[in-house]
Design a protein around this nucleic acid. Structure first.
Lengths: 243, 243
DNA sequence: ACGTGTATACTTGTATACAAGTTATTATAA
DNA sequence: TTATAATAACTTGTATACAAGTATACACGT
């Protein structure tokens, strides 16, 4: 039980977060990473003991996680749904759906400011690669897409994003940690991909955008593999919990 | 303050609901209907007193409502966002988006069972018209679309629906109550519209589906007008609250 | 051996208490 | 009259207490 006290979610990102948020972020990571297996039944009391807090923050976290579709609240306990291949596919269905929608709006807007902002984020990503900071890279990657989505000022599209984001973030976080160790050269390809996306936004070229999205999606397939490897790394590094 | 104790949400739909759910459903209706004006700052304590319960269920309700984008949780109090013309447009953007996505899946499935189920719901709607039960009609209307969406078994599309549904339901509820009083003949047109939708699903005809969706959308524009009328009816029938 | 009832150890939902922080108000001084 | 400091009345976030319901295990009678 030595390793299990480690946190999967970057603690510095939680500096001003409430206990409820902390539980949500960490619990989410443990579920996405497979550390907590699908089908597991979570009890509020056990979680409260685990996270050394009262049931109030735990309840809040469980409600959040259930609205993100990674657990299911039932009469007795919360059942872990987690992220299997099907869910990953579904998440990217939705991402494709909303990003396509967003692009249709973007082509009717002035995108110079957005393109500038995205370029800045891209620079950040390059720096993160240079200093081998996987977490920072993941953060900027998520921010990149969030910036695009928020630029059209559509509160209900943003609502969808808000529900998707935490899971995406966790997913990408785990994936990038593996890549920084094992597939370092992949990162430059991801950067290229994002450059393509910016070009598409600048040129307002649908074909280019579709192309970029699809390449991004191919990357995702890679991420899926990474995730499994990440799960294996975790599960072999940590002893089994008895129930 | 005589009228303000009335409930906007059908109480019989809350038979087994928790206090938290009751607060959420009723508060949502008061926000959507405009009974609680946009920009109002809600306090947990005041709401708890209003609904005669403790802060726990109120907190739960506020969290739900904020994930539905009709309030915004801030440091001090929850700010009511509500549903203005912009939000209604946005909600229907999303509905169009997901229902189009769903249809693309449907055309690759066996839809006979679904069509049967939808026909049943349509019959229910006709009965509701016959007995002038606006709430039941609204319920079946929402169920109709929910049934279509759930038929493709896509948990993240369902996630979007789950976040959208309560607001949609409330919105349609208010709209139908007005129509049953003032635009009774509209209802048969809505039924026709749904029949068209079923035909599109049976025939797997994209054009027919698009046509039906757009007519449905025209209906929505009507609903928007109804909503304003509903809001006026409420605001003139109820004395102002002093703050 | 097997069904049935009961005791027990869980579970959630809700109320309440308390701490820490923010806003508003009031009193005081210039 | 105005600026400022202190106090009072809020606010949320978290812990805890309690009630009501549910699953489990165990004993008992058949």
């Amino acid at each position: 039980m030595t390793e299990s006290k480690d946190f999967l979610y970057p603690q510095k990102w939680l500096s001003k977060a409430s206990a409820g948020d902390r539980v949500a972020y960490e619990l989410r990571m443990r579920i996405i990473s497979g550390l907590i297996e699908n089908g597991t039944i979570l009890s509020e009391n056990k979680l409260a003991a685990d996270f050394e807090c009262s049931r109030s923050p735990v309840r809040e976290a469980l409600k959040t996680l259930s609205s993100e579709n990674i657990i299911r609240l039932e009469r007795m306990g919360a059942v872990v749904i987690g992220i299997s291949e099907k869910e990953i596919q579904e998440i990217y269905d939705v991402r494709l759906m909303i990003e396509t929608f967003v692009f249709e709006r973007l082509v009717r807007m002035d995108t110079t400011e957005l393109a500038m902002e995205l370029s800045k984020i891209l620079e950040m990503m390059k720096v993160a690669i240079k200093y081998q900071d996987a977490d920072e890279f993941a953060y900027q990657d998520v921010l990149f897409h969030e910036t695009i989505i928020r630029s059209i000022d559509h509160s209900y599209i943003e609502m969808i994003w808000n529900n998707l984001k935490p899971v995406m973030e966790g997913f990408i976080l785990l994936s990038m940690r593996v890549r920084f160790k094992e597939n370092y050269e992949d990162l430059t390809r991801i950067v290229k991909n994002h450059e393509l996306y910016i070009d598409a936004i600048k040129a307002k070229d649908r074909n280019l955008m579709i192309q970029s999205l699809h390449q991004n999606f191919d990357d995702v397939q890679g991420k899926v593999d990474d995730l499994w490897r990440s799960q294996q790394m975790l599960s072999t590094g940590v002893e089994q919990q008895d129930d």
